[in-house]
């Protein structure tokens, strides 16, 4: 038995696939929403450049989000999170990222310092964690979540090369 709760690579990849789907999917959704207006005044090269910056940021974001379930698996008791890592981490990532989709609108509309929103968000975070642990322990949700996450891992084959290419593009533009 390992001293550390380190999920296996396939499970991490599957959870990362879920995160990629949501993080990159969200950006691409808004990218295509803005595209018709950009086509009015930007060249295709410039639009590709914007996409490159977005994909590079997406890589950073998706890795940051992945750190959360990995950290939880590491710190929480094995039976809580690590034991059903794939399902619990996938559920937690989906709930948190889904919440962020709403949070952006709420904070954009907030006037003054939205203290209640921040406090509520922390509470929601704990609620999501609890729910993720519960879902990971229930046979049917666990099976559905794991199955979904395994299928989502295919997106990594698209996101990683595109992001790495974008990163190279940005490095070239900024360092040379």
């Amino acid at each position: 038995m390992s001293l550390f709760n380190r999920p296996n690579r396939a499970e991490v990849a599957a959870v990362y696939g879920v995160i990629v789907l949501l993080v990159y999917g969200w950006t691409l959704l808004w990218f295509f929403w803005k595209l018709p207006s950009w086509l009015y005044f930007l060249s295709l090269g410039e639009i590709a450049g914007i996409l490159a910056y977005a994909l590079t940021v997406n890589l950073l974001e998706s890795l940051l989000v992945l750190l959360l379930p990995l950290g939880l698996a590491f710190f929480l008791p094995r039976r809580w999170f690590y034991q059903n890592f794939l399902a619990s981490a996938a559920a937690l990532s989906m709930m948190l990222l889904g919440y962020l989709m709403l949070f952006i609108d709420w904070i954009n509309e907030a006037e003054g310092y939205p203290k209640d929103l921040f406090v509520g968000s922390i509470a929601a975070g704990f609620g999501f964690l609890l729910l993720a642990i519960v879902l990971g322990n229930l046979p049917l949700p666990r099976k559905i979540l794991a199955s979904f996450a395994e299928r989502a891992s295919v997106f990594i084959y698209l996101s990683l090369p595109a992001s790495l290419l974008s990163l190279v593009f940005i490095l070239v533009r900024n360092l040379l």
Binding site: W26, F31, I50, L51, Y53, A54, V57, E61, F103, I104
Partner: peptide, 28 residues
């Protein structure tokens, strides 16, 4: 950034601007 024109457009304008939603994690 040295590549400011594209960086402003890609980062501050698309991903982080006002009511735009380009970035799901870093924007909020």
């Amino acid at each position: 950034f040295r590549d400011q024109t594209l960086a402003y457009r890609g980062l501050d304008d698309f991903l982080f601007r006002g009511n735009n939603h380009g970035s799901l994690v870093l924007n909020p």
